[in-house]
Design a protein around this nucleic acid. Sequence first.
DNA 1: TCGCTCACAGTGGTCAGACCAGTTTATTTT
DNA 2: AAAATAAACTGGTCTGACCACTGTGAGCGA
Lengths: 207, 207
Amino acid sequence: MNSPQNNTKVYIGIVKQLRTMIEHDGLKPGDRLPSERELSERLGVGRSSVREALRALELLGLIETRRGEGTFMRDFRGHQLVQLLSTFILQDKKSIRDVKETKFLIELDCLWLIIQKASEDRLLRFKKWTLEADYTDDDFFLEIVTLADNHLFLRIWIILKDYYNSLDLEKMMITKQQYAELIDTLISRKDSEVVRVYRNLRKLSKN
Amino acid sequence: MNSPQNNTKVYIGIVKQLRTMIEHDGLKPGDRLPSERELSERLGVGRSSVREALRALELLGLIETRRGEGTFMRDFRGHQLVQLLSTFILQDKKSIRDVKETKFLIELDCLWLIIQKASEDRLLRFKKWTLEADYTDDDFFLEIVTLADNHLFLRIWIILKDYYNSLDLEKMMITKQQYAELIDTLISRKDSEVVRVYRNLRKLSKN
DNA sequence: TCGCTCACAGTGGTCAGACCAGTTTATTTT
DNA sequence: AAAATAAACTGGTCTGACCACTGTGAGCGA
């Protein structure tokens, strides 16, 4: 499906070559990449072009550079993307509302995922933990989102959380009782009509 | 201009200054940014540093450069970020499963948002459209996600959709009847217990 | 006056070289 | 052997140069 990219910029090509290089050499987080000068020579391009590619990857949080040491693979998390996406894209009031809404719905999605995926026994322990755990809002939902076992939701949620906190808004203050109530409700609805339709659609989407 | 602070890289500072510049001048998608050389002079930094900042923003899909013309604000969409995030981050099978799961749940979230936000009348027209519209899967859900009026969900969904399509997987084939059934169910549950708990939590999160 | 050509200025794209500021490694000195 | 020093890296930045491309306007001809 690759279109004939006639006007492909050099740094984009470098990014792609880096990607295959990383895959081929099996580079993992923490591993070191070749130096800028070596890449420049090996790929037959100028060092500035290499740098443009690296800076882009750095901003995306995929690599990390340390002066005097080198360039390293990074354990991708939200990172810089957070500040940029947030400060650039999320400026008006409506956007802030969208963030709240999205964060909230993702948290509920994860709660739902946990309940759908967990066994009866696991579910009881989960509910018990909900009531007993000593947590702040962030920690609580971080646990929820982690338990949902969906890395993508985790990534997105962390980004939203960081942005949300940077807004210095009033925090949600929800009691443990309310959480427990929600979980109870979701559990009791585990076989409800809505969920059944959800399930059907999901089954279909599993090719 | 920039006091050479220890750890702050110049191009990061430039990105931030660009951001405030865009905000201050009220630049909108399609508007032109100052040339690289002018920015270089105005900010008191080298042109290569300016370029590193611009390339990073370009990769994020925030700006667009046209040789011979200039640099322009972009109407942000998934863009390059898609291919990069996808090829770099989403490689193993579990990640693919996460993408499907996330895409699916976001679509349901948006459906839920529409139903929650819409008036009785709007809802009827929506349901009618669901049955009558001639759409592909993508178009249908694009409409759903758009109607949900949450730009963040829209952005994320487009990214996921593009990645999903690039996988060359079997498409979901769901009938209009099934869609309608789901919508009916969601509407009928609009005031159900689950939704009420959702609402309560949401109210609390509205500080 | 109108319409066309064409040179020119401006813009992004790229490169090479230079220097700075750190880190690591090898070498010398103690 | 240990410590101090020097050399050889690394990324960070700036400058100047050249290319390819675009828009403009001066100048020419009709």
